[in-house]
């Protein structure tokens, strides 16, 4: 009979106790999700890879500071989010796609124009302010419960909902589901 897989917390505590394989297993569980969040937040693959690496190394080193107040998954993703925000704010990366707002608002009626103004989902996400982008990616793309996303982002639940609402409204236009002049 197989023993159940260790929980995230068990792996982290094993790592703290000196188990040399525990952290690798924990990292393997989450690096794909970390990568997805980093890439969709930062857009630049090299930046995203750096952020994930920074996160894994920081978590490896700071395992001793984990108190169990949040889940290990939340704790790991919070490190990543802080790294991403730090990059965006302090390295002044241009992560947004400049959008011709006036043209979008004008809402050209012909099909050709609508095809031109309809962005891919990833490009549309990149056009959102980073706070909205993070909330939408966590909740709508990665499926985090709003409450956990709020814990991760260290903001109230209502703030996450508000950021999602603003972000989805903007995306609905950018993705061509809605024309701004309709409202």
């Amino acid at each position: 009979m197989c023993s159940p897989a260790p929980t995230d917390a068990e792996l982290l505590f094993a790592h703290r106790a000196g188990d040399r394989h525990a952290f690798a297993e924990l990292a393997a569980r989450y690096r794909s999700r970390l990568w997805g969040l980093a890439l969709r937040t930062l857009r630049d693959p090299e930046d995203a890879a750096d952020a994930v690496q920074e996160t894994l190394v920081a978590a490896f080193r700071r395992a001793g500071s984990y108190r169990g107040d949040a889940s290990v998954r939340t704790w790991l993703h919070r490190i990543l989010v802080n790294s991403c925000i730090d990059r965006i704010r302090h390295e002044r990366r241009h992560t947004t796609v400049p959008l011709p707002d006036r043209d979008l608002a004008a809402g050209q009626p012909d099909i050709a124009s609508e095809l031109v103004t309809r962005l891919t989902v990833d490009a549309a996400l990149a056009a959102l302010p980073v706070e909205q982008r993070l909330a939408v990616v966590l909740v709508d793309v990665q499926g985090w419960p709003v409450m956990e996303a709020a814990e991760l982002l260290e903001v109230p639940v209502g703030t996450v909902k508000s950021r999602c609402a603003r972000g989805r409204a903007r995306l609905a236009v950018l993705l061509g589901h809605l024309r701004e002049e309709e409202r």
């Binding site: 790592h15 703290r16 106790a17 000196g18 952290f23 890879a49 750096d50 690496q53 920074e54 894994l56 190394v57 920081a58 490896f60 080193r61 700071r62 395992a63 001793g64 500071s65 802080n82 790294s83 730090d86």
Partner: peptide
């Protein structure tokens, strides 16, 4: 074992 949190400074992740 791993080190305790040295503070709020992000970790140096090594070559990137």
């Amino acid at each position: 074992g791993p080190r305790a949190d040295p503070g709020h400074a992000p970790a140096d992740p090594g070559p990137r």
